[in-house]
Structure formats: C-alpha cells, structure tokens
Design a protein around this nucleic acid. Sequence first.
DNA 1: GCGACAG
DNA 2: ATCTTGTCGC
Length: 229
Amino acid sequence: MTTVRIPAGWPATEEEARAVQDELRARVVLDEPGPPPGTGHVTGVDVAYDDERDVVAAAAVVLDAATLDVVAEATAVGRVSFPYVPGLLAFREIPTVLAALDALPCRPGLVVCDGYGLAHPRRFGLASHLGVLTGLPTIGVAKNPFTFTYDEPGTPRGASAPLRAGDEEVGRALRTRENVKPVFVSLGHRVSLDNACAHTLALARDYRLPETTRRADALCRRALREATA
DNA sequence: GCGACAG
DNA sequence: ATCTTGTCGC
C-alpha cells in the first residue's frame, strides 16, 4: 500500500477542473483498436471513500484476460482531492488511482474504469482522463446511464444498443447477463468501441459487472477499512 | 431558474 | 459513493 499526496496544481475549483478537461481532451486517441480481447493483462481500478475522515483508497487488480485469474494487485490511500461533482468525477479519483497503478509489479495492459470515458458532458470522463495521463488503453464501464439515453437492448447476453447524448452516439448499453440490466460501455483511450464491448463481455463471464471492477471494488473497500481502522 | 446527474 | 439485515430465488 502506498500513500498519496494531492498533486501540486491540482484544480481547486470546478471552473479550473473543467478547463483542464477542455485542455486534455485533444490528446485522447480514439482510432486505435486496442489489445485483442482474451489475451494479455486487463486491470480493474476502483476507489472507495470515507468523506468523514477525508480518506480515499484506490485499488488496481491485474487479471489474466484469458482465465480471469488475479495476476497482481496494489492499493494506495490518500486525502480526498475533490468533492463529488457530476462530470468531474476524475478529479476525485485519479491521484490515488495513479498511485495504485504505479505500485503494480507488472504492466497493466487494458485498464477498465468504473465510470465513463467519452460518455461525458465534455466527452472527457474518468476513462479518457486516466488514458491520457498514463498513455494506457482504457475503457469505461458504468452501472448507470448517467444523463444519457438508450433503447433497451435485446434480452440475450451480448445484446447492445447505442448510448446517446441527443443525436450523438457516446457508447453502448451492453447486456452482460440475460434479462438483467445492461452495463454502459464507453470509449476511453486507444481502444475501439467494438473491442471495448468484447472485453467487457469477456470480463463479465460470471456476473453482470466485469470481474475487473468487482475485484477492484472489493480490494479498495478492504484497503479503506484497514486505512481507517 | 430548477432539477437531474458516473462514483 | 455511503447508510444497512434478512431474505427470496437459482
């Protein structure tokens, strides 16, 4: 477990944070296919909070993409770096997530974020932001449609429907379990949408949510408990 | 102007 | 995100 400080120059206001997003957005790469599903490493990242004690814990869990076995994991704890503001989630999560990724003993491969990438008010969500800062291929898999709209995908596992912001397609509602609420996949950095959905489906072999986010969620909660106890 | 809104 | 037990169902 590593301890994190809030980076110097980290935005202090919503206005500054939005300016950072507008600045970094130009660096997102959307025209690469990304790593082939089912090979190499896939890493889940997630964060848990204790706002009372001003503590945040992040986890990064590396899985073997073929077997979904855990290959490596790391955690980091720090101070809360930003309040929760819809559209500015990344500023709350990123410093600690970066520290957890840095603490990994191996390359993370594709990084799966708990939230959005392109599907964002300024098209620069958590997955986009993390991708630009690390250069790693990233995707976002969210549990809720945020402000976006979608038509209900077909019943079977693997069915999908566009996730839209008005006329613009910003991601996909992807059914990972038959007859169960879909997850919401969007592009992060250096991965195609088809590939992002294929990865998500492969990772959601046993549950609605990808194994990456389930493992990272469990680990960051444990890290928060231990840091807080 | 008001409310809704990833985690 | 977080507060929170048991319980219904495969």
